[in-house]
């Protein structure tokens, strides 16, 4: 029928070839982008490849793995990574939730206070680490040392005595604004009538927080935890600027351990194994996070 040719509701004929030709560029780029580096890392992990001994290149079997897994620094680095992640998450989410509720209240100068509390997030990690190292935590010139001396206490050499704690403080200071920002928007999205209903039901400030605000924040807390986890696993600049992973391995996390292999020992093979280990660790964490928060994100 001639009329059939004008039937525009029929989708244009499109075979599998047509779809593939459109998808191929994207798939190709994604393949090169993600899979090739992974495969190269895998390749290097089985090779003897140290820049200090360029003539001794070749297949090494599981040599790199054996070397890394017997390295006493590895267990410490994994432990430090988890400790750093856990502590910063606890501080930023905990304090962020409380501050979000407080910053939701009406008070004089709220606009300025909100800008100020967000400021640390806009400072580059290297810069803020330098500020903390030289102006806050320095045992001679630091502000904290000044405060301690002025009340008659002996100043602490933060990066020598409690290196990981110092880094946790710096990173928490940087990430608190992010948690506060996401949680504050969540607090503000809480229906005003729901809060009023709770007030009519007899909820004071504490019951309101416990039974109304906190459950409402569940999803925002889950999302913030996941985003922060992604970034906190790879903390590097703060360690590089302040302690260089020391003393010993006291403040070395996995990403800094990889750096140590590559650029302090020039051991590409060893670094590749550590990188693979970091991927495994990230995936284990992601699995648990997704599982515990999937329920929250469903609704």
């Amino acid at each position: 029928m001639a009329a059939h040719a004008f039937n525009t509701t029929q989708p244009p004929p499109r075979g599998r070839r047509g779809v593939w030709s459109l998808n191929t560029p994207t798939i190709t780029i994604l393949f090169l982008w993600s899979l090739v580096p992974l495969l190269m890392t895998l390749w290097f992990s089985f090779r003897r490849y140290n820049l200090m001994a360029p003539d001794r290149i070749g297949f090494d079997g599981l040599g790199n793995y054996r070397y890394l897994l017997t390295d006493p620094g590895l267990a410490l680095a994994i432990w430090n990574t988890i400790l750093l992640l856990g502590a910063v998450l606890a501080i930023t989410i905990g304090l962020g939730t409380v501050l979000a509720v407080l910053f939701d209240q009406e008070f004089f100068g709220r606009g300025i206070a909100r800008v100020l509390v967000l400021a640390p997030f806009f400072i580059m990690p290297t810069v803020s680490s330098l500020l903390w190292k030289n102006m806050m935590m320095h045992p001679d010139n630091g502000f904290i040392a000044f405060l301690m001396r002025s009340v008659g206490l002996k100043p602490i050499d933060w990066f020598a005595v409690v290196p990981l704690t110092s880094i946790i403080i710096i990173v928490s200071w940087q990430w608190l604004p992010f948690a506060l920002l996401t949680l504050l928007t969540a607090v503000q999205s809480l229906d005003a009538e729901r809060k009023e209903a709770a007030r009519m039901d007899g909820a004071g400030p504490i019951a309101m927080f416990r039974y109304i605000i906190l459950p409402h924040l569940g999803r925002a807390i889950a999302a913030t935890t996941m985003i922060e986890t992604i970034f906190l696993l790879g903390i590097f600049a703060e360690i590089y600027v302040t302690t260089s992973g020391g003393p010993g391995f006291a403040s070395t996390n996995l990403s800094f351990l990889i750096y140590r292999y590559v650029l302090q020992e020039y051991d590409i093979g060893g670094a590749a194994v550590a990188a693979l280990l970091a991927i495994v660790l990230a995936n284990i964490l992601a699995f648990f996070l997704m599982r515990s928060f999937a329920r929250n994100l469903e609704t």
Binding site: E193, A197, G202, P215
Partner: peptide
């Protein structure tokens, strides 16, 4: 305060606690 007045209010949006 509202809770001590012995009144109950039904809101237009119902304002139920979703969780």
């Amino acid at each position: 305060p509202p809770a001590k007045r012995g009144l109950a209010l039904v809101f237009q949006s119902y304002a139920l606690y979703p969780h």
